[in-house]
Structure formats: structure tokens, C-alpha cells
Write a protein that binds this DNA or RNA. Structure first.
Lengths: 209, 209, 209, 209
DNA sequence: CATGAATGAGTCTTCATTCAT
DNA sequence: AATGAATGAAGACTCATTCAT
């Protein structure tokens, strides 16, 4: 196993275990053992357990950033179409990176590590401003309502997705979808969540006329 | 300090610290010290740190149960009114018991303690069935749409409230409400969240006609 | 073994091992094992390895303080007699507490622990001022020379005693005193050191007339 | 940086850090980093951390040897003059190589490394025999007293110098010499120490008549 | 019934050294 | 000859729990 591979193996294992047992509930020994790597490598590569966590956030945080630069420029799309694409992308991303999203939720609640808190604050502000731009654009075009609470809107989207990630298995049980194969259920849930959020956003954003 | 008082003091302190630093991040010594109680009392009263957590859940879990028994029977209210009252009550409850709600979110994600997991599953099923009844009632009366995804609906409500609890301070900053006094801001946020969820529920539930 | 005994046993063992292998060269496990005490007791009793060291200093530091309050008041003694008694007492004390004195010398040189550095500075200043008083008294009485460098004088005494403590075995070998029994040699060395320092002090202090 | 330079750089840095933090308190990584040299070089060049220390002693130990070969032969000088020159040289040497002297004192006290202990024993014996010769010479010439305790005499010199090296800053403070520039104070202290030791040696050695 | 004292297992981290290149 | 990467051992310390009183 090469240096790069070990590095990456450690990050992956850490992500899995942090999501499963929490940061404090996971020992560096657990991570090293499961990654098949010497325990000292964690300090060697990352400096400390905390820094390992930060490295994990830095690796994954790009996945959280709204990638809408191109979207914003595309004049062939209506504002609501842009918003819908954004929702789809976000839902897909969270469902794909469930483990990291779980870690992130807990970390926001417990907020101990200042480096991570800052990283998240930064991301949130950036996302809010991007969405804000998109909405202003829609307002100019007369597509969207005049008064829109951006943070509330984002909280709606993020909250719903997060909650359904948490209720993932429970949703399956309650709706008697245990026999649906995993990937199919994932797709189904993802679509439902997407379409729900879109519906909600329409109700909250679009001028009814 | 009497036995009852110590017991209660320990639970309160544990709740505060678990919400602040997480379960694993909080030591029984921290709890005992801050509660002004001998460390051995935690094992003595509750059996173990895990059992203390379970006791906390058992104490607070009533707060999570939807209290709709009376609501359901009241024939003077329309279904949508009942739903709105339910939303208001839930939002108020979460915002009041923020600390416990924080703990609960993390515990659902990390899910290590089976006793708690079962407790939560039970609660969720019960809540879903109660809401299910309410909705069926509304459907019979023709107020609500035919097809309603109950778990999705609950996830929308819970997700939004949770996310705004997490974003509490960030929401304040972003909307330049730092100067609004604490209790006033709490009330404001609570109202906004309530009215948003109500609006969303209407859009998802009510027959447009 | 009672609590007090363990406490004391740890201090004694620590003193022995610190004198033998230095502070950094001694592990808390070494100390605990040799003291026949659980390793966790060191943190439990003292807080940390450093605090254990500080406790050791606080216990022994009284031994270093010049105990001359009574001496100073005694008007039946001449100033030079007082100085001689002081020397005797100091030499005896250092030779008795060799282990601690060894630790102290190293700690002054390496000076890492600020608490100990301050303790030592304080002691040094106090000792210097006490000796200063004694000397001023002798000067008033015309017994001592006008110009006396107090710190230099103390350094002479402390330096000589320390050096002979260090050269203890070597002195024995060089002077072919291997066959002299331990306690006898100790006494002999102590007397020689005392009388040497007295002689030197006389030469440095007393008015030749 | 050439091989020689790295070698030398490592020795210098080690000397500085050992004097500052002690042998055990200094890690090979510290040394290598501060020397700007790869960590592996220490084992590579010297074999081990202990061997590095030994190399340091071998490099510096010449500085400790009394250099009196020429002095002894010079018939134009009186014995007491020779002794005085020797004292001056020694004081100057210690004050110049303070760092190494600090290390040496600690190493004598802790005595863990047998190689170094032997080296020091050898040096001490040699120094004692050289001084012994000088004294015997003075005795033959009738300049010195009959009975002289050589090791005691050396201990007096070494002890005083060492103690003033340790009390360096404290001496400055106590005598309100903080404003005297560094090199000037060094010179001043060196002169005072020299003259004190000379005075003492005279009192102990020279026949009063 | 209540508790101060005690403990062994576990935590993260650092260490000097070695090895493959 | 020289080194970046790697490692097992050891470091100090904290933990939840237990037990004698």
C-alpha cells in the first residue's frame, strides 16, 4: 500500500467510523486497525485526530458548496428551472455522501472544533449569497415573490434532506419497501425528496398568477 | 440536597453537557462536579452513564410525543386547524427544549445505544400513526388530498425545525437581528418557522379548489 | 497501605528516582511500580507528573530555608559564631537530603517548570536577605568587613557543598577512604566541608586585626 | 551543507538544546529540525542519541582538561602565580562554554551513560594529579602549606564557578546590574569570581608568614 | 443509604530508530 | 552516501466503574 493509498484509506475509514460512532466515540486505534495502517501514521500524516477530522472536512467540503456558477450564467433557463436543478444536485449529493453529511450534522450541533465551525460558517454564508443572487435574478424577471427569506429557504431544503437521511431506514419500513432493492429504493427516495422540495419551493417562491 | 434533588440535578446537568459536548465528549466526572454531587452517585442512581442517558430520554420523551388525543376528538375544529395547532405546539416544544433536541438528533445519527434507538423508533411510529389518523380524517372530510406521504410530511416538519435550531445563531446574524433581545428573537423565529411550515403543509395537504 | 502512606510512598519514590534518572528520565510508571501503587494514583493524588514534582519541592523546600530566626535574636553569640552555626546546619542538611539537592541542582539548570523556578527564586531571595541581615549586624558590631558580596558568599557555600555532594564517591576513592564505613565517611566529609567553608568565610568576612 | 558542516551543526544544536531542556527533554527531531538536517542523520552519523551526547563530550572535554603542561615548566613563575593563572583560565573557560558546562553538571548528577561517567572520572583524576603536582612543587619551594586536600581544593573552585553560572541572572538582579550591558556584566562577573577564588586559594594554600 | 478512594483499561500522542530506495 | 517514510514501544493521562466503609 503506497503512501497516497494509506492516506486515503485513513480518511475513508475515519469517515465511516465517525459517521457510525461519532468523533469522540471513535478511537484512532479503531481507525488505524480497520484501515490496516500503523496507529502512529495518523499523527504522522495528519498531526492529530482533530486534524484528521479537519482534513476530512476539507476533502469533502467541496461537495457541499453549491456549484452554480455555470447555472447562473445560463440564460436559456428560467429562474425556477435553475432552482430545481440546484435542489436535484443537492439532494443527490447528500444522499451520495450520507456518511459525511451525518458527521457534519453532529459537528454543527456539538461544535467543539473551531476550525470546522469556521469552515462551515464560511460555506453557509457563501451558499446563502449564491442562492440570494439566484433569487434576486428571479425577482427581477418577475418570476419570484418580492419577499424571500433566504436562510429559511435553505434551512427548508437542508432540513428536509437531512431528516430523510436520518429517517432513511424508518421511511423504508413504514412504507413497506423492505423488499425493494437498495439502489432502487435510494433512487425512489431521492426522487420523492427532490420533488417534494421542488413543490415546496414553488409554493414559497413563485408568484401565483 | 435530597435524594430526589440530586437525581434531578444530575439529569439537568447531563442534559446541558450532553447537548454542549456530546455524550462521549462529556465525562461522568464533569456531570457530577457541575451538579455538585458525588461521582459515584451516577452509577449508584442510574447504573451507568448509558443508563443516565436513557433516563434522560425517558424523562423528556413525553415532550416529543404528539399530544393530540383531545385534539382528535374536538369536532369543532377543521382538520387543517388541527394540523396547524399541532405544528405550533411542536415548534414551541422543540424551541423550548433545544438542548434535549440537540442530543436526540446526534443520538439518532450515531445510534449506538439500542435502548434509545428502540425508544425513538416507537415514538416515531406512534407519531406517524397519530398524524396518519388526523390525515385520514381530513381526507374523509374531503379537506385533504388523497395521497399523502405521512413520514415525508413529518420529516418536513421535523427537518425544518431542527435545521433552524441548528442555524439559530447563523439565522440571526444573516438577517442582522443581533440587536433584537433574546426572548424577542426566539418568539420571532418561532413564529416564522411555524407559519412557514403551516404554509408548506397547506400546499402539500390541502385540496386546492 | 493507607492513603497517607501511599501519598508519602509516592513522594519518596519519586524523589529517589528523579535524583537517579532525572525528571524526564523517570516515567510515572516507574514511580508507581516501585512505590507499589497503581499508576493512576499519581494523577489522582497530585494531578500530573509535574505537580508531583512541585509537591516534592513544597515538601522539601522548608529544609532549604535558612532557619535563623532564633539565631539572629541570640545575643550571647558573636556574628561569626552565628555564621558558623549556619554553615554547619546547611552542610548537614544538604548531606542528609542529597537526593533532593541533586534534583534541585538539575532543575535550576534546566528550569522548565515555572512554579519551581519561582519557588527557588523566592527562597534564594529570602536566604540572601537573612544572611544580609546577619552580615549587617556583624558589620555594625565591627566584626565583619565593610564590603561584602552576599550572593557571592552564598554561592561559595552552596557551590562547595554541591560540588562535594557530586564528587562524593570520587573524593572517597581519591583519598583512599573506600574502607571507611559509610556513616563514618559521611561524618568525616561533612566535617571537612564545614570546616573548609568556615575557614573561607572567615577569610572573606572577618576584619583582620 | 557538506557532511562536515551537518555533523558540526548537529553537535552545536544538540549542545544548545541539551543545555536548555536536558538530554531526555530534547528529542532528536528537535535537534535535527533546528539544525536543518534530516532526522535520520543523527543515527546515521552518530549511531544513536546517546552516542551523539558522547560525541559532544569528546569534542568539548578538551576544554575541561587543565592545560598546564607549559605552565609547570615555566620556572619564571611562582607556584601561586601558576595557580592563579590556572584559576583565571578555568573561570574564563566555564563562562565561555556555559552551555556545555550545564550539560556536564546534570550528567554528573544523573549519571546514566557509563561512557560519559568514565570520561569524566578520567578527566577528574588527571586534573587532580596535575594540580597535585603543582601543589607538591609549591610545597617543595616552601610556598604552600604542608597539608593540602587536592580534591577539596578543586571542588571549591569548580563548585563556586558552577554555582555562579547557575545564579548568573539572579546575581545580576540582586546586585541591580540589569542595566549593565551583557558582555560588560560577563566580564565583571568573571573578574569577581576569579578574584574571589584566588583569595580563597591563597587563604587555603599559602603559608602565612 | 451514601461516598471517598481506588483501579485497570483505555485514550491520544511522541519517541528513537530502521528500512527501502 | 543519504533520506523520506514508516513503526512499535512507550509516554502521560483520563475514563467509567467498583468497593470498603
Amino acid at each position: 500500500m503506497s503512501s497516497r493509498e494509506k492516506h486515503s484509506q485513513l480518511l475513508d475509514t475515519a469517515e465511516r467510523l465517525f459517521a457510525l460512532k461519532g468523533f469522540e466515540g471513535t478511537s484512532v486505534r479503531d481507525i488505524a486497525d480497520e484501515a490496516g495502517v500503523n496507529i502512529a501514521m495518523i499523527s504522522y500524516y495528519f498531526g492529530s485526530k482533530e486534524k484528521l477530522m479537519e482534513a476530512l472536512f476539507e476533502k469533502r467540503i467541496g461537495h457541499i458548496k453549491m456549484r452554480v456558477e455555470n447555472l447562473l450564467k445560463d440564460s436559456s433557463l428560467s429562474s425556477i428551472q435553475k432552482v430545481e436543478m440546484l435542489i436535484e444536485e443537492y439532494v443527490e449529493r447528500v444522499m451520495r455522501d450520507k456518511q459525511f453529511h451525518r458527521i457534519m450534522v453532529c459537528e454543527q450541533i456539538i461544535n467543539k472544533n473551531p476550525a470546522i465551525i469556521n469552515l462551515l460558517k464560511e460555506i453557509k454564508l457563501k451558499n446563502a449569497s449564491i442562492i440570494g443572487e439566484l433569487i434576486k435574478d428571479g425577482q427581477k424577471k418577475g418570476e419570484f415573490k418580492k419577499k424571500v427569506d433566504v436562510v429559511m429557504l435553505l434551512s427548508v431544503m437542508v432540513g428536509i434532506v437531512t431528516q430523510l437521511m436520518i429517517n432513511h431506514d424508518y421511511y423504508r419500513d413504514f412504507n413497506k419497501l423492505q423488499d425493494t432493492p437498495d439502489p432502487e429504493f435510494e433512487k425512489l427516495l431521492q426522487n420523492r425528496v427532490s420533488s417534494y422540495i421542488k413543490k415546496i419551493f414553488k409554493a414559497l417562491l413563485v408568484n401565483e398568477s
